[in-house]
Nucleic acid binder design. Structure first.
Lengths: 337, 337
DNA sequence: CTGTTAGCGCATTCAC
DNA sequence: GTGAATGCGCTAACAG
């Protein structure tokens, strides 16, 4: 740690510790002269307050916790950028925790953050999460929490999401407009509201097109990319009529690509693909991938901003402050998908 | 914060605070009976020690800081995964800071971490960093630091990198083997050792093939993707003999693709491209991109492991512990690039 | 305007 | 084996 502390400054200046403290905190009750003197020496000696002493005393950490499933994914990378930026602007620090998509880890982490280590939490729940009991304690402790992207509907707090139902509807509708009649739906977080909303969009689009829903067209992916690909391929080989794929996440869109290649189905002639993805270079894929692009950076920023309103202005976080940001359907001409 | 503290436990059990503290820390001087009693009540009441009080007292935070340029990039995403995993295994927390590739931010962040907030630092320097003065304080304070990927040669501490010179050589050599004779080199961090090593690999490969080096073939990219693309395109249009591109980072490889498309140069017929990249789906690009793939996850893990050896076993971190991990040249058949 | 005092919650030294 | 006392470094209430 920084070796110089308040006491040393005080001795060197022949002042009391509290005066020095107040001078450094720019308190109104200190004369301009002493303030200057103190601040000068402080910078000279490179004084930095001990954050833990300060946190202990103030009962606040100037730190937020961010809990996400995984970083190895464009969406969360961008979201973190947004979060970190807002945090820094407000003089806060960011602790990061990964659940690796497991419920157990999520529980442990949430539990461990209920000890004062952080003043607030931003969380995107794991794919396994079905139960919200572990969030109860946060509420009890009045620990401000904002969900983003992957939310827990049961918890009454603010949630920043994309218009998932609409996105699912528009994506499916687009495939239908391109002539698809038998559209596979690939989903990861099937018991999360995000997955369900996207799927409802898919179902409603089918219904509005007077097409029946066939649940054999539904594939629930897992964390293993190769397995997902194999699964999709198998279905493609079983069902020659499949002419479209709507992937709920980027990795599954890729699995769709690979599966088509392996099954000898040409994209977009035989099968058209559309997927949620924040990939910059989707247009360079072969063929270009039509994507639903989420405003990932904005989601991170909005979530953080909401949290800091609570932390800095002491506004409670209400479910009514939830935001649903618009996603963008980016059609890449040549694919049709 | 967690509302129950040592004092309350002590009162409820009719014990002294110190006994309770020792019981919870499994001290040898406490009887098995009391230990059990104490631990039982502690779990019942959901006691969690206040981390800041504990840190203040122990003079250590069980927290490490990770400083990186940006997360919006596959390499750092994977590295973070590796780091977080090792940290959690060792019961440590991870604070994350982004420099956004600017030197000023890097300075500020490094400076701010020299106050005891973290017990150790993992850093990948910004593209602008040329001066290592801001790291001096870390050394002074004996704050264990490990560089990874983008290192600062001047600082005498451990560094985990890829075999950048070799990678650059192999990449260039591969293009030469495929018949390229006029190879553009795109680099981002040109004054960083990582950029220079890759370039030296490029230069030596040219020399070994008895080809002259033409510095008009060198493009120094910036943070703006569109600008980079425009720059590459311009050069392609000026110089019709260019038949290869070696991109030092993923984003520049993509810029190369776009530029070729715009300039009407066919890949790989007219121009072959090879780039550093951890993109899983490089084989799905049109045409597939031959990549030098860095062991990003392993780099994160190794760097963290080294740091924790210092933190937990009190071993000093030495420059001699530096590691150079092997990258992998992944040739995608159809491109030739 | 400045100093004295107290205490945040915990770990540890010293007593017994 | 347990309790009392001390202090990590800082902030804040209370005097003056």
């Amino acid at each position: 740690m920084s070796s110089v502390n308040l006491k040393q400054l005080a001795q060197a200046l022949d002042l009391s510790v509290s005066t020095v403290s107040r001078a450094l905190n720019d308190s109104y009750e200190i004369s301009a002269a002493t303030k200057e003197k103190v601040q000068l020496l402080a910078t000279q000696l490179g004084y930095q307050p001990n954050p833990y002493a300060s946190s202990l005393r103030r009962q606040q950490s100037r730190t937020i916790g961010v809990i996400i499933p995984e970083v190895a994914n464009n969406f969360f990378s961008l979201a973190i950028n947004g979060i970190e930026e807002v945090a820094r602007q407000n003089g806060y620090h960011v602790l990061i925790y990964l659940t690796h998509e497991t419920f157990a880890q999520e529980q442990t982490i949430v539990q461990h953050l209920a000890n004062g280590r952080v003043d607030g939490i931003l969380i995107s729940v794991s794919g396994e999460t079905q139960d919200a009991a572990h969030f109860a304690k946060l509420r009890e402790l009045n620990l401000p929490t904002v969900f983003f992207d992957r939310v827990c509907e049961e918890v009454a707090t603010a949630k920043i999401t994309t218009d998932d139902y609409d996105s699912g509807y528009r994506a499916t509708r687009h495939l239908l407009d391109m002539g698809c009649r038998r559209i596979m739906h690939l989903t990861l977080a099937h018991h999360l509201s995000i997955g369900q909303k996207r799927m409802r969009g898919y179902l409603d689009a089918l219904r509005d097109a007077d097409l029946p829903f066939d649940d054999t067209l539904l594939i629930r992916g897992g964390p293993n990319a190769a397995q997902n690909t194999a699964h999709v391929r198998q279905l493609l080989e079983q069902d020659a009529h499949i002419d479209g794929i709507f992937a709920s996440v980027e990795s599954l869109a890729i699995a769709g690509y690979r599966a088509c290649h392996q099954a000898g189905r040409r994209i977009p002639n035989d099968v058209k693909i559309i997927g949620f993805s924040n990939l910059e270079m989707a247009d360079l894929l072969d063929p270009p991938l039509t994507t639903i692009r989420q405003p990932a950076y904005a989601i991170g920023k909005e979530a953080a901003t909401l949290l800091f309103r609570a932390l800095l202005k002491n506004q409670p976080i209400l479910a009514s402050q939830s935001l649903e940001l618009k996603s963008e359907l980016v059609v890449r001409a040549s694919t049709g998908g």
